[in-house]
């Protein structure tokens, strides 16, 4: 379970997350929608401790992410994150990209890591691309590789930050399909996305972000189907 309580986050003088609270239960899929610059990415990076916070707290399965003694490297094994820019490691082949963390972080043997990597890559439909380099893949394939790379650590949670926003339109579908599959397998996910139809379909709840705050949160048929706040309505009109 992820519990976010009254989190405030600033970059210098600029406060970009202004008191956000929400919780995500095991097996739940929560989509986060909202305009660009509203603090969605920043919140995701606070959840796995890539960014410090100034106030409030975030607990993942009871562990206080920003407490002094917390071993973030250990915590991050359980929280996969996939970024808008997929960040493939260009010097490693597809299977090596996926094997790296299991080997260097979990200390698995090459053969064990290879077996896991191959399984994850087949799962996201890249079983034929094990030996090629990321530069030889399409954007959609690289993004699926990034998902497999996160899954190789067998995380309990997956965070997705607009993973389809940088893709050509015809490649969006295959990545959404991969996420759909994960959700159907019961993966707990927080999905920042502009794909409103997708959010509506897979989410248990949808949170609408506006200038660093959650303006509206609830089941998709409520937040997307019959939004109450003026900002939500304006935003949905702009993206639909």
């Amino acid at each position: 379970m992820i519990e976010i309580r009254d989190v405030h986050k600033s970059f210098g003088q600029l406060e970009v997350v202004k008191g956000v609270s929400m919780s995500v239960a095991k097996g739940e899929v929560v989509s986060v929608i909202g305009g660009s610059g509203s603090g969605k990415s920043t919140l995701l990076m606070c959840i796995n401790g890539l960014e410090p916070i100034q106030k409030g707290n975030i607990h993942v399965d009871g562990i206080d992410v920003h407490a002094r003694g917390t071993d973030l490297n250990k915590l991050r094994r359980r929280i996969g994150i996939v970024f808008q820019q997929w960040n493939a490691f260009p010097h490693l082949s597809v299977i090596e990209n996926v094997m790296l963390a299991p080997r260097k972080v979990l200390g698995l043997k090459r053969s064990e890591a290879e077996a896991i990597a191959e399984q994850r890559l087949k799962h996201v439909g890249l079983g034929e691309k094990l030996k090629v380099y990321p530069s030889q893949l399409s954007g959609g394939q690289q993004q699926r590789m990034a998902i497999a790379r996160a899954l190789a650590m067998s995380p309990d949670y997956m965070l997705f930050d607009e993973v389809t926003s940088a893709l050509d339109p015809q490649l969006v579908g295959e990545v959404l399909e991969t996420m759909r599959m994960l959700s159907s397998e019961g993966m707990t996910m927080i999905v920042v996305t502009h794909e409103i139809a997708f959010a509506r379909e897979v989410s248990n709840r949808v949170a609408f972000f506006h200038s660093g705050r959650i303006r509206e949160i609830g089941p998709p048929e409520q937040v997307i189907g019959s939004p109450q706040q003026a900002e939500t309505i304006t935003f949905l009109q702009s993206v639909l």
């Binding site: 890539l50 094994r77 490691f89 963390a101 972080v105 990034a146």
Partner: peptide, 14 residues
């Protein structure tokens, strides 16, 4: 790119 470091750290690497 600094995003390479961030991607590696997010996988739990020191």
């Amino acid at each position: 790119p600094p995003t390479q470091m961030r991607a590696a750290r997010s996988l739990g690497m020191s």
